[in-house]
Design a protein around this nucleic acid. Structure first.
Lengths: 259, 259
DNA sequence: TCAATAGTGTCTCTTAGACAATATCGC
DNA sequence: GCGATATTGTCTAAGAGACACTATTGA
């Protein structure tokens, strides 16, 4: 916490010395767990609306490192693979009636002049990633009262253009999903066919034919059947499968159509 | 020219007031003409290496408008559709042994202090577009001695990380090409089958089967055969075709596999 | 008639997508 | 046996890709 406080002081006071100005990163961290797709949002203590986890880029790091750093400061997630998907640059995009010098002063205790660098226009580089949200512990940063998951279909009121950023990230995720396999980081080592199919169905918000779906993944060699079943009460127990890591990674590189 | 000079003065002196700092746009403008794929580059008067047409973003415009503005300042191209493809942010990416305060002073006549805002680190938003290069007249900007087309396979020495930006843009263009039709802005209203096939072959740097290629475009309805031929000396004259604009635009929206 | 290029059809193989009956488990 | 869910195969249609001969023009 000391470190974090020191970093925040540095940010407010010495920001322009260490950080790039007029550019930020915003992370859309999608979390999946048991048929639900969620997004990680945070709310600064004194604000009534929510924001994406985001931050500024140090002069000594890439945008990707900045996005990864921001994500791991807010959550227990290390080494997330965050993917650039779009730059948002509409003039006025980071003006918001809540985001004023007064409110920032109230939030931080610092005296923020109206021309403070953080109140300047910013273009934001959007990143997204997909993770298993039950594994994530969120640690709200110093000024953040809350940092929690929200269902993708029931988002709270957001600040700035962050609703638009989430919408664009979802579009990007779905396009990505159709061309590349997903699931390696999201499912347990051993999983069932209904589990992986439901994952796809949840993200795409449409039903997939069970026969065709498994046929395709098996034919491609992406997943392999194990000699075990998962005990489930009340009905037939499903077989377990595992990813073939090599084929999976090849498909990631080369691309393939999935659903 | 007066306008341009005024703008450049404003840029050097009042840059931080009107322009975003630490962010720029760089345009990879691909030009196609008769089996050749080229890239538009410029060279500042006193420099020995080349750069991409690029510039800064005004606080009152989007990154897209900035890219379009820059492109139309350097060429006769208005309303180009420039496509964001990646942000480049490696620390030190815009350091270059040629790009020093001294050299900038020599180039511009202005007294550039070593901590001038243009010498600060910049992340750059990469845009690309594809155009017919025979239609383009280049007007080098004030400090640019030359602004010319270079063959994609014989690029000159470049400054900064611009060689990498071009390589990434080409990757993006090729992926785009496989999923969406191109050619509308690149070919004359009436064109022949060999012409459009050669366009694809040039960009992809591989041969396409002439029968399958035409079959596909015709079956999709993207192009339509006309009742005219193009007179060519020395051998059989090819038929002319035109795009079906509606189908073409639909394919642009929906995506399709082309080659 | 030759050189150069354009035009065109068929076959095979793979894949996408539609579709429904049977198996297992726990109660 | 029943309720709940998992598993699995076949058929058809469309598309991808391989492949080679004929047509036209002008010199």
């Amino acid at each position: 916490m000391i470190d974090q406080l020191a970093e925040i002081n540095e940010l407010f006071i010495n920001g322009p010395r260490f950080y790039l100005q007029n550019v930020s990163v915003d992370n859309v961290i999608f979390g999946y767990h048991e048929k639900e797709l969620k997004v990680l949002l945070q709310r600064p203590q004194t604000f009534t609306r929510w924001i994406l986890p985001g931050g500024f880029i140090k002069k000594t790091e890439t945008a990707e490192s900045a996005a990864t750093r921001v994500a791991s400061q807010r959550t227990s997630l290390e080494n997330l693979f965050l993917q650039q998907f779009k730059v948002f640059s509409k003039p006025g995009r980071n003006r918001d009636e809540l985001y004023t010098a007064d409110n920032l002063k109230q939030l931080t205790g610092w005296d923020i002049p109206p021309d403070h660098w953080m109140l300047q226009p910013f273009v934001s580089i959007g990143f997204y990633t997909l993770t298993e949200f039950s594994k994530v512990t969120t640690n709200g940063s110093f000024y953040m009262e809350e940092c929690t998951w929200w269902d993708i279909n029931a988002l709270p009121a957001l600040m700035f253009d962050h609703a638009e950023i989430i919408a664009e990230a979802l579009k990007a995720l779905r396009i990505h999903l159709v061309h590349f396999p997903i699931g390696y980081e999201l499912l347990p080592k051993k999983f069932t066919l209904p589990e992986i199919r439901t994952l796809y169905e949840t993200i795409l918000e449409k039903e997939l034919d069970d026969r065709n779906f498994s046929k395709k993944l098996l034919a491609a060699g992406i997943i392999e059947k194990l000699d075990e079943i998962k005990k489930i009460k009340g009905h037939r127990s499903p077989f377990l499968y595992k990813f073939n890591r090599r084929v999976y990674l090849d498909a990631l590189k080369e691309g393939m159509m999935v659903p």
